[in-house]
Design a protein around this nucleic acid. Sequence first.
DNA 1: CCATAATTGACAATATGTTGTCGTATTGGT
DNA 2: ACCAATACGACAACATATTGTCAATTATGG
Lengths: 157, 157
Amino acid sequence: MAEESQLGGEFTLAIFKLNGQMLAAGEKLARPAGITVAWWQVLGAVLRQPLTAVGIARQMGITRQAVQRIANRLIDEGLLEASPNPAHKRSPLLGPTPNGREAVKQIAPQQTEFSKRMIDAFGRDEFQRLIGELHRIADVVDEVGPQREPAAAVLPH
Amino acid sequence: MAEESQLGGEFTLAIFKLNGQMLAAGEKLARPAGITVAWWQVLGAVLRQPLTAVGIARQMGITRQAVQRIANRLIDEGLLEASPNPAHKRSPLLGPTPNGREAVKQIAPQQTEFSKRMIDAFGRDEFQRLIGELHRIADVVDEVGPQREPAAAVLPH
DNA sequence: CCATAATTGACAATATGTTGTCGTATTGGT
DNA sequence: ACCAATACGACAACATATTGTCAATTATGG
């Protein structure tokens, strides 16, 4: 029936719209610090501990190539630095430089401010509940997503 | 406080992740019909009635330039056609060609299938409730978004 | 230990989106 | 009806992301 399709479409469009809104909000927060949302995400991924490009990609949910291009750019800009990876000669660990750390730190106040307004608007418990719902939705989409390959039984090659 | 920032970040990342998932799911649905998600969205916007490029952009929540590039491409591909707009000589009405309509129609079954799986996973009422939540979130983000200009009081120029 | 698999970085092509500019229509107030 | 503001299409420059390829490194099974 068309109604099912209708509901799914409405759902998808709602997600796309939210994505656009959060991207726009993020750009406004990041711009004063001289970085973009993508840079912010990459730097944010390595604040606690350095990661390889592939590790950052996994955390961000995008391809390693996309991360690598941004990482190379961030290294050029002096916001990210590569250090030797004992576990992998070709895949250095990437971590923030002091400047990189500073850029992220500059964003924090406005980001907290924005978060607070969201929390105030929803109520803290409700906001937390909504985040839980979003995670749950992500899990379900993973499960029922179209034509995902059949769980790749572990076979010897 | 850092916890607020934390919550906001988790929220944002959840949205980004969902966006990536829905984009990936959409690509898989649209590919067999020879179109992309963006093309699908544009064609979908004009199925009921032709719209101008600006109208499509408004409905999709992206800029008119992005829509115009895709629309031009779709016209090249013979999936979209321009017809004279009585209300605006320079801004033609854009509508699907038979081929364009056919492409969207080809996607419908799998899209319905995917939607059904989502609805089955959540339960119909729950799924509808979640869509409502997403709309509500979008409204709140609009309201509390960072540095949005102050509602532009209607002034004579 | 060695041959084959998988991983990784670099590069290129393409798609999608943004901002900004330009020239030309279109519109709306006086 | 005129004139200034606005809207629109076309372009260009740029950011982000995807897919695909290649060569080199790393991991793994026999």
